[in-house]
Write a protein that binds this DNA or RNA. Structure first.
Lengths: 148, 148
DNA sequence: AATTATAATAAGAACGATTCTCAAAGCAAG
DNA sequence: CTTGCTTTGAGAATCGTTCTTATTATAATT
């Protein structure tokens, strides 16, 4: 079960990369596994701390490739460090709790009812303005359990 | 009318700064006026482009002071540039349309009904996790009128 | 007004996260 | 196994941001 989910994940990633003429190398696979295991947005420092990704420059470059391929998403917000997470296509639509004190970010989800309200609203926004919505980002700002 | 609103604005800012033993200098007043006039989050480059704020280092320092005093808020999200806007106390609770293409950010507001749903939800979040919500951030991601 | 103490400014140096360069290593196809 | 092309890794370069420091402005006090 766990194994088949992982197979799906890697197959999907490989497909996305192929579409961009990019190979799914061991290094890139390691990155995807780190992000999948984390379950929350991680910094470059956290990626490197595991030891599975040896070179910082490669980590940045490959994350950038994965972002372009639509597999990974950049997350800003807590502090001045960029964080990375798997794209929602590979996880689930979710949101972030951002700690104003330490900058850490955790995931959470909201009821479908509310998500639907939001989507409806954004449809209206697109009618009013020239803006074309593709998705949304809902973060709760506050202090995390460690800092509170 | 416009004039009295501006007086209120500056009086409020001055009060906040005083509480932090900070002066409301001409340079800081210029910053506040730029942010108030913009009506959307602006980058340092945009702040300097006006010419009213001569030194980049001073702009950064003063914006940082204003952030600490609770007068200004940092906004991340579009590209890798930090943007600044007046704190909600001085404007109104609002949200952002973030262009994935050019990084520009525009303001918008949502119906009270929905805001209340969000606030209720975050109360529940705080009960479930150790996280203490202070506020939220709701951004629409998409392409702006210029880029779409 | 002059004095003094403290805070703010401006220019550039320093810093740090991210990106770029390029030689070496890896991989796929003939 | 070559040949051609991609990826890797180490470090240099870049660029947004912060820090340092000498100078200038401000406020308070005589």
């Amino acid at each position: 079960m766990l194994r088949s989910m992982e197979q799906d994940l890697h197959a999907t990633v490989a497909g996305h990369l192929r579409r961009y003429d990019q190979r799914y190398t061991n290094g890139r696979r390691a990155l995807v596994e780190i992000l999948a295991a984390a379950g929350r947005p991680v910094t470059i420092a956290e990626v490197l701390a595991g030891g599975a990704v040896p070179a910082q420059s490669t980590a940045y470059r490959n994350l950038s490739v994965l972002v372009q391929a639509g597999v990974v998403r950049k997350v800003f917000g807590g502090d001045d460090l960029t964080r990375f997470e798997l794209a929602e296509e590979l996880t689930e639509h979710h949101h972030h709790m951002v700690c104003v004190n330490c900058g850490s970010i955790e995931d959470f989800t909201v009821p479908n009812r509310l998500e639907q309200s939001l989507d409806k609203l954004f449809g209206q926004v697109s009618e009013t303005t020239g803006f074309r919505p593709q998705g949304h980002r809902l973060d709760v700002i506050g202090t995390c359990g460690n800092c509170g």
